[in-house]
Amino acid sequence: MRSEYEVNMAVERYADTVKRLCMVHLKNTADTEDIFQTVFLKYALSSAEFESREHEKAWFIRVTINACKDLLKSFFRSRTVSLEELAELPAEMGEDKRYVLEAVLSLPDKYREVVYLHYYEDYTAPEIGRILGKNLNTVYTLLNRARQQLREKLGGEADE
């Protein structure tokens, strides 16, 4: 089990990452709180040794995505929450940022996470494949389709 200090440091380092992943996958604040608790409790109870900060970050991303998927799969949730509504965005966000985020969040779930990992976290397709446990070709396909859809919504060239 990890010390309180280690947990505090992890929250300071990865809370924003977990929050963004929650936004990519979930729709409301209550679910985000659940995911935060699940992820950081898992970290506190885990004795996994990390080789580097990057390794640790990848662990948090994988655990957060899995926790989000578990939550979405749960029987109770599937009956009570609409999956169509858009995630709550910060009220003070600028117009362009809001527009871009809404475009990303309007993509199907499987595209949203690869867009986040590739465009924001700068992971390569093989890295994304390892984190998500997906075949490399699948990742390439997902990225290409996501890019096409984003280009339609936002205009301009992706990956330039």
Binding site: R20, M23, L89, M93, G94, D96, K97, V100, Y119
Partner: peptide, 9 residues
């Protein structure tokens, strides 16, 4: 644009 949008979260 995507980076900056996610950065604000």
């Amino acid at each position: 644009r995507i980076k900056s949008a996610f950065d604000s979260v």
